[in-house]
């Protein structure tokens, strides 16, 4: 394996590891649940995509064949992360989890809890 390919793989792996670390740090340190929801569902998905691309390049170069499993895992995570985030936000709304004081549009939480459309301004 040439040194250039190795450097590219290492860069992808390091980027992925740093983003995964960032997501977990956000999960630990952000103030309330709704802000905490952002860190793992965005940063961790990006980090895992970095790891998967790195390993895809490695197996493509080392074994001279196209490995599609990584793409499958990446696609699956990209599809399922927003869905599970939405479900967790719904259950948090349902359980009346506290928000930070500066959250905008807090009155909308009630209508979302009762599964109604937001009130329209006109008419």
């Amino acid at each position: 394996m040439s040194i250039t390919v190795e450097i590219i793989i290492c860069a992808f792996l390091l980027m992925g590891g740093l983003f995964v670390l960032l997501g977990s740090f956000g999960l630990l340190r952000l103030p309330d649940f709704y802000t905490r929801l952002h860190a793992p569902t965005k940063a961790t998905t990006l980090g895992l995509a970095g790891l998967l691309i790195g390993s895809m390049i490695y197996f493509f170069v080392a074994e001279q064949r196209l490995v599609v499993h990584e793409l499958l895992i990446t696609l699956f995570l990209l599809i399922t992360a927003p869905v599970s985030a939405h479900m967790m936000a719904k259950s948090a709304l349902h359980h009346r989890v506290k928000m930070v004081k500066h959250t905008q549009g807090q009155q909308l939480a009630n209508t979302a809890r009762k599964r109604q459309p937001p009130p329209s301004d006109g008419a």
Binding site: F33, T45, M88
Partner: peptide, 18 residues
């Protein structure tokens, strides 16, 4: 709260995939 724990479990399995 309970949703925090669910979120932590979700992140745990994603990290273990890595």
């Amino acid at each position: 709260d309970l949703p925090d724990r669910i979120l932590a479990l979700d992140t745990l399995y994603i990290n273990s995939i890595g």
